[in-house]
């Protein structure tokens, strides 16, 4: 066997062996690098030119993601739905750690796209006709599906949970789902106080006055006097109101 052939065989066998043996090592390191969605090379080069591919390759992934997002807004101006959706996905693939991309993207899907579909003049039909309602819900579901793709550690953060709750509440009018997301959000220690108050109001809107009352009471107990965002007198007053409502009901 000549040397070139021998070398190829040695390279092939040893590389394969090392590749197999290092598989566990490679997988263990992926927790460090983060679970990043695989980008589509085709859409990268077709949509944005080779410069972006090179940038993404070379480590300027987050910068490339920002440029993709800026370019997405170019399409947004012309209401190009599929291009906008494609570029949003590309940007979050390149930089899945940006909460801004997830929130802004979900809002475009849930709020802008239904209007683009029916047109500005018929915007009201989204809330008045069955067809409009269907369109609104379709995009609301898409927005939730988009947010579901966020990395696990982000999807458990308050802004994403609140955004999911807001979409479920305002776009899908699905109070149960909205409350489930709010419940997860308010369980997080760092949740802003106003989210807790909104949660209580949504509970009331959903007819769960007792739950709202109980929750606000427990929330009030955690509030400190120094925190100006706590609005303790306001919360206290609301607790009284809910108590009155409950008393009147019984």
């Amino acid at each position: 066997m000549n040397f070139k052939l021998r070398l190829f065989c040695i390279w092939f066998c040893t590389s394969l062996l090392v590749g197999l043996l290092t598989q566990p090592l490679r997988r263990s390191t992926q927790t460090l690098t983060g679970k990043q969605a695989e980008e589509s090379l085709v859409s990268l080069s077709v949509g944005l030119g080779q410069g972006i591919t090179l940038a993404a390759l070379g480590g300027y992934r987050n910068i490339a993601a920002n440029l993709v997002w800026v370019s997405m807004y170019g399409d947004w101006r012309y209401r190009l739905k599929s291009e906008v959706a494609q570029k949003m996905m590309l940007a979050v693939s390149l930089n899945p750690d940006s909460i801004y991309f997830w929130i802004d993207g979900s809002r475009i899907l849930a709020n802008d796209m239904p209007v683009w579909q029916v047109g500005d003049e018929l915007m009201n039909t989204l809330f008045t006709t069955p067809e409009g309602l269907e369109i609104r819900k379709k995009y609301g579901e898409q927005a939730l599906a988009f947010l579901d793709k966020a990395p696990e550690r982000l999807s458990q953060e308050v802004p994403i949970l609140v955004e999911k709750a807001a979409i479920s509440w305002r776009r899908l009018e699905d109070f149960d789902r909205a409350l489930a997301y709010f419940k997860q959000a308010v369980a997080i220690e760092s949740v802003p106080n106003h989210i807790c108050r909104v949660y209580a109001e949504v509970l009331v809107k959903n007819g769960q006055v007792r739950e709202a009352y109980e929750y606000l009471k427990s929330h009030y107990a955690t509030l400190s006097d120094d925190d100006h965002t706590a609005l303790k007198p306001f919360v206290s007053k609301r607790i009284e109101e809910l108590k009155g409502k409950l008393d009147a009901g019984s």
């Binding site: 480590g59 300027y60 801004y100």
Partner: peptide
């Protein structure tokens, strides 16, 4: 070109990319 991430992280992105 910075969208949403903190400024220091944005600077770090450039450094890491280089």
């Amino acid at each position: 070109f910075n969208l949403g991430s903190s400024e220091l992280r944005f600077i770090a992105d450039f450094g890491f990319g280089a």
